[in-house]
Design a protein around this nucleic acid. Sequence first.
DNA 1: TTAGGGTTAG
Length: 649
Amino acid sequence: MSCLQKIICRLDSPKNRVLAFSSQKLFTTFTRQLTVPSFPPNQQTLKSLCSNGQVTEALLEMATLGPEMKFKGYDTLLNACLNQRNLRGGRRVHAHMIKTCYHPPVYLRTRFIIFYNKCDCLSDARQVFDEMRERNVVSWTATISAYSQRGGIYSSEALNLFIQMLRSDIEPNEFTFATVLTSCANDSGFQLGKQIHSLIIKSNFESHIYVGSSLLDMYAKAGKIHEARGVFDCLPERDVVSCTAIISGYAQLGLDEEAMELFRKLQVEGMSSNYVTYASVLTALSGLAALDLGKQVHNHVLRFEMPSYVVLQNSLIDMYSKCGSLSYARRVFNHMSERTAISWNAILVGYSKHGMGREVVELFKLMREENKVKPDAVTYLAVLSGCSHGGMEDRGLEIFDEMVNCKDGVQPEIEHYGCVVDMLGRSGRVGKAFEFIKKMPFEPTAAIWGSLLGACRVHSNVDIGEFVGRRLLEIEPENAGNYVILSNIYASAGRWEDVRSVRELMKEKAVTKDPGRSWIELDQTLHTFHASDRSHPRREEVFAKLKELSIKLKEAGYIPDLSCVLHDVDEEQKEKILLGHSEKLALTFGLIGTPEGTPIRLIKNLRICVDCHNFAKFVSKVYGRKVSLRDKNRFHHIVEGTCSCGDYW
DNA sequence: TTAGGGTTAG
């Protein structure tokens, strides 16, 4: 028996053949000389060879297969490559198929679409799809899915493909609907999404759990939470995804109390939760600044060993920083084994909102030095805003220049220009800020003018303030805040006639202010107050204490700032309105509800008014309390009569 | 063979 025959004899079992392939150079040489082995391989052999990275050898084996077995052989090879995300191997299989003039059926071509997509080669997947003469619902859905998974600019192509699919008379199935709806969860796709909803009803898929989840998510992302809830309530069965989708729908729209209420209700009904559910719940708790409840969720997550999910940790960072506990947020950040740009952004935003500019700049430097994660547009927003709020304006302007020079490949967008306006205005360079706006490559938004108007008020620049204020009243006539600031600017210059005219204008336009709301967490319960609110069970105590405060603080030098009230009423009435502001009620409740010396943590849904800010400063001084107040924009840490915002917010 | 929910944003 020759050497070659001996080797072939030993290769009867698939296991031995693989071993031989892996270990004996000699054998490979012989096999290549043979080109066509003398017996057909079975699927296990092909799979094993491919899994061992020996795609070329596996393809040589394919030569012995009859045409009817080739389909199965290629499928096996491709599956092995797919499991290992072996792009090179998959490409070889593809090339071999073309070279040997094998015409794969729809199934196999679709598998290649899926393979290329999973290997992140969208253009190859698309090429396979485009070259198909015949397509079925799976090949269409797999291609649509490749685009919808990527989101963003790819969503419109997913929708185009879906329309083409309908035109080619292929009926979508539940997979197609569940997929395509994810591409409708944006402003441009919503109208088509509603039409697809009609189609879903006609096709009787509305109650399908995957389709229903996708549908309710689309409505929630379009801000149509009632429609989303309608779809959810009609689902015959619910699972963790559909429940999480509706909870996160509420949370993403800032309907935090509703999100928590529904979460509790569904928990009672026995819903199961996973790390995505907790990430969404933490978003709602961040909005509510419910620290104690947030800690409870954190403990639960640790107990159930879910701590290593990056998404969950990012949510924890955000929750702790928005609840005022930056040290906890930093601890979570420090202990992460893997960080994404969102992890960095969340902690940077945290420091930024607390006015800690130096920490923002240091952390950003560390992010660049580590060079593991690239800063994105949000990173720059956090850093520029952090510099602005944290007294690091000049460093912020340098960082903006670096952005313009494309240091990290992130182009400044209009929001970044807005940060620069804020920085210039904050540091007193109001004229420069005005010039900067004029030269911007974008049309200034109301927010940008609003930022400059605030600067004009603080730095008493009546000329620019008047121009900007009048401009704002034209483009944003419904925003009561603009009238208040313009009126403040006129009042500071003693232009009482103009103050009156702004007031008249406001009345004429029937401007309504967003209702102000403040709350405080005591014993894991959120106590909410509206202006002049008399609904709280301890209202009598609150108002009695408020009266006492008014007297005591005035003795200490507090003078109510009546210019914060635009109602046309007498001075006594104005003072009464001011004293009824929701943040004063919540602060007073904090004083009576906590032991002496305990820090008080408040949250306001809008920007705090100048008078309430001053009031809180006097409370901190007279009553020896640290007051931490989170308003719409940032944290105010008030100690001994001084605020961390430096009276500019 | 194809499918749904998630974290950061002045």
